[in-house]
Design a binder for these strands. Structure first.
Lengths: 219, 219
DNA sequence: TAAAATATTTAGATTTACCTAAATTTTATT
DNA sequence: AATAAAATTTAGGTAAATCTAAATATTTTA
């Protein structure tokens, strides 16, 4: 099955939005891909034709097992390239997502597997997300609590769910990265913002929105 | 200047064909890009619009200095990725060209420069071709004699000018790679084929066409 | 140098991946 | 349940990069 770059991006987004949901709506997909609902409908017909999705008018979209397999391959490539960029080329985590968006479209199993080997077959990427293996098997995204929901007050950063460069750069300058340990100083109920502190650094406050995208585990 | 992948491929091919030639013909470019002359004419108009080439109807094509700069960037990326694939991921030289054709289109100066650094700023790629530096300066492709033209009979392989996987794989199985030393046993005038021998291996004969694409220096 | 051969361009289509505007269907609300 | 609101699809178009067939230039050759 030979996919175009546009098709790969659709498949990847559907996979992402399908998580937990029963089906992916035209609108949600259009928003995710920064395109129009009408374009999504067009592409849905094409992907259905190729048997990568199940789709009936007005009924939303689901990946077929075929489609899921394709998605996992793309995700595998994406996350391996992110590892490469961070570990070998010293990029910081907020820079790699966009580059990996391009590199992921180089479809060569041999390249992917060699890259994985070169990196020591890593299990998670620089954002804390699991990397599917060559067969498409992926460790469950470890049950992660967001800082927003977490009850505990001594925490370690396990992942960041929002990969926008702006947020990641903000976290970077504040010293928040994968593995960072932090203390919750105060939770403000009126706006759900949280004051946190990292060892040897001044405390600072983050909004509810930011707290929601920082995944943590108690320590 | 933001180029599409198609535009980049045209620029790269024009650069290649321009070497030595006064101007690049529509037909030659169509053949090189495996497309039709009519398509080349269309694209020529677009590239002229973007000031990357000089082009007048029926007069052939030349890169502007703008266009040359773009070409050298693409070639730099291509050759660096080839180095990466061979040196870090243990690909053999006949496999890397096609992969590099895709990787070269990831346009990030930062990535390119980091990659170069990671590889130790190599000066030549696995086929023996020089790699332009970040400023687009490229060591002259060392004056290379083809095995076909060479007068000497003890030679070292410096490069291979034809990157088709088929030829490179043939050379591979025969034990011919960059740096290989070989002896010319006999030159057959009737068809310009050449019998050569690599140390510890049986002698074999190559056609004129193959001899033309093996670049050598006397030792 | 005129005709033939070759090279190049133009004209008009096609495919992919989009778009806008209008029509239709589904869902929510009174 | 009828209507309003929201979501989705259809219809018709656009831009990029191709193509084929026909027209036009240029070059070669007899």
């Amino acid at each position: 099955m030979n996919l175009t770059i546009a098709e790969e991006n659709y498949i990847k987004s559907i996979y992402k939005l399908e998580e937990g949901q029963e089906a992916v709506s035209t609108n949600a997909l259009a928003y995710e891909l920064d395109t129009k609902p009408a374009s999504v409908t067009d592409m849905a017909k094409k992907l259905k034709e190729k048997k990568l999705i199940a789709y009936e008018k007005y009924q939303g979209i689901n990946l077929t097992s075929e489609g899921k397999k394709a998605a996992l391959q793309i995700i595998r490539r994406h996350r391996l390239w992110e590892c490469f960029l961070v570990e070998k080329l010293s990029f910081s985590w907020e820079e790699v997502h966009e580059l990996a968006e391009e590199l992921e479209h180089v479809r060569s199993e041999k390249l992917t597997n060699r890259l994985s080997e070169f990196l020591g077959n890593p299990q998670i990427d620089p954002h804390g997300d699991p990397i599917p293996d060559a067969q498409g098997k992926m460790g469950k995204p470890r049950v992660q609590t967001s800082l927003h929901k977490s009850k505990a007050n001594r925490l370690e950063v396990m992942a960041v769910s929002d990969k926008s460069a702006a947020l990641l750069e903000f976290l970077n300058t504040k010293g928040v990265r994968l593995g960072t340990q932090l203390d919750v100083i105060e939770r403000y109920e009126f706006d759900n913002s949280i004051e946190i502190k990292i060892k040897n650094q001044p405390a600072f406050t983050i909004s509810e929105q930011v707290a929601k995208s920082i995944m943590v585990k108690p320590i």
